[in-house]
Design a protein around this nucleic acid. Structure first.
Length: 442
RNA sequence: UCCGCAGUAGCUCAAUGGCAGAGCAUCCGGCUGUUAACCGGAGGGUUGUAAGUUCGAAUCUUACCUGCGGAGCCA
């Protein structure tokens, strides 16, 4: 077979090569034929392009080789780029030559519909599909936007460790690791406590990495391994953190709208929903949120009457957020339902200076955060009250012994944010290889 | 962990107590503009597993396994 010799270009660059002879290296996305004319569609990771091979214009060897190719065969083609409204994507390549790298005849994922289990079992191949490709491109942009946002705002990236000796959330959701001599280690649930140390060193910091929670949760919003970005600011309050959260979310949505136009089309995302994500976001005191839930119950829109003092369930969150077309920030939760390190409202000691950001359209809690307690004595009490081993937290208590200041931060789940941006049902599609209860492979 | 639903060809599904089928995929053939192309033909089955009821079970019963949806908890 002849060598493919023209300059290699990528499919998303074709508009700059109209009239030129180019080489595309990729995989066969689909093949249609009509007698003496073949329409192979190639994908190369940047897009999909339709090629046209006319029997009279190529050698018999190339014709026969192309004719028999199955989906996902690997090949390079040489041809002339042409704008054509009949082609999906707007550009078409008149094929001159082809080189087959790998011939495939039994690719399991066909253009027809498949079930969730089958697709999840073939996740390593499913990633090649147009929709999955679009979702992960959006994820990439969400991550990039997050990093740019903090980098441009004077934050220092200071990542937290993944092996930790103690929990910062509840102890029921820890993954145990048996490796360190004579001591149990756990996979991190949050970089929160370490962030407080680096914030005292750098002022404004963030960490970004994988997080592990052994919750027996089987919902569209849960993964056992997920990625979280956590900013932390010294000399900052609950209000500062809410302002930071709304600025960040608006920045992310803006970047996705600009950088992922094609992907949002593939996903059939209603972009008006993303355009609405601009500050200020409504701020709702927990007491007022509870009032809202009571009204919802009286109107018959909520099954059970919410009791003051609890944390919101999924239907409660959805009901609250349904009143707004922007994310809503619920603040001043009862201290009892929040972590031990939360600062208290000086006027009402039973309330914590915490905030949850509830995304619209039922996407639920995408951000949780707040102001941290500054008093050494208070934290010692809380550690005892929660029956946590104080010796494990001595380093953390040092942060209160040596230059304790008001500080605040939050955590955002990248997958929940990405699912929201994409407008998709389940977070499992927003990470290349999801880890869930009952899902370790592939 | 609890509640609900489902498991039949490689995939998506039909067959509701009486011959296990269709579309897609695969293979063979046809078609010079296809858009999840179309047309003709072929191959493809331990009906999730085990036991039970019955003359007869994909179908009814029980247990188990697997998956999906929801709840609690969370980002």
């Amino acid at each position: 077979m002849e060598k493919v010799t023209a300059d290699r270009v990528f499919i998303n660059e074709l508009s700059q090569h109209v009239g030129q002879e180019v080489t595309i290296k990729g995989w066969l996305y689909n093949l249609r034929s009509s007698g003496k004319i073949l329409f192979p569609q190639l994908r190369d990771g940047t897009g999909v392009v339709q090629c046209v091979a006319v029997k009279a214009s190529v050698t018999p060897e190339i014709w026969d080789a192309l004719k028999g190719l199955g989906q996902e065969s690997a090949l390079a083609i040489r041809g002339t780029v042409r704008a054509d409204s009949r082609a999906p994507g707007g550009y078409e390549i008149d094929l001159i030559d082809a080189q087959i790298f790998s011939e495939v005849h039994d690719y399991p994922i066909t253009p027809k519909e498949h079930g969730t289990e089958f697709l999840m079992d073939h996740r390593h191949l499913w990633l090649r599909s147009r929709r999955q490709h679009a979702i992960l491109k959006v994820r990439h942009t969400v991550v990039k936007a997050v990093r740019d946002f903090f980098d441009n705002d004077g934050f220092t990236l200071a990542d937290a460790p993944i092996f930790t000796p103690a929990a910062c959330e509840g102890t029921t959701t820890l993954f145990e690791v048996d490796y360190f001599d004579g001591e149990k280690a756990y996979l991190t649930q949050s970089g929160q406590l370490y962030n407080e140390a680096t914030a005292a060193a750098f002022g404004k910091v963030y960490c970004f990495g994988p997080t592990f929670r052994a919750e027996k949760s089987k919902t569209r919003r849960h993964l056992t391994e997920f990625w979280m970005v956590e900013p932390e600011m010294a000399y900052a309050t609950l209000d500062d953190v809410m302002t930071l959260a709304e600025r960040m979310l608006a920045y992310i949505a803006g970047r996705v709208l600009v950088d992922r136009v094609e992907e949002l089309k593939v996903l059939e995302r209603d972009t008006a929903k993303l355009e609405a994500i601009v500050p200020p976001f409504p701020r709702l005191h927990y007491d007022d949120a509870v009032k809202m839930l009571h009204e919802g119950h009286e109107k018959g829109l909520l099954e059970t009457r919410f009791e003051w003092g609890g944390d919101f369930g999924a239907p409660d969150e959805t009901y609250i957020s349904s009143h707004y077309d922007k994310p809503v920030m619920v603040h001043h939760y009862p201290a009892e339902v929040k972590a031990f390190y939360m600062a208290r409202d000086p006027e009402r000691n039973d309330l914590a200076l915490g905030v949850d950001v509830l995304a619209p359209e039922g996407y639920g809690e995408v951000i949780g955060g707040g102001e941290r307690a500054t008093s050494l004595e208070f934290l010692k009490e809380q550690i005892a009250l929660h029956e946590l081993p104080q010796e494990a937290f001595e380093w953390y208590l040092d942060l209160r012994r040596y230059g304790s200041v008001p500080h605040a931060g939050f955590g955002m789940g990248i997958e929940r944010c990405t699912a929201w941006m994409c407008g998709i049902e389940h977070v499992r599609e927003t990470i290349p290889f999801p880890r869930m209860l009952y899902r370790l492979r592939p």
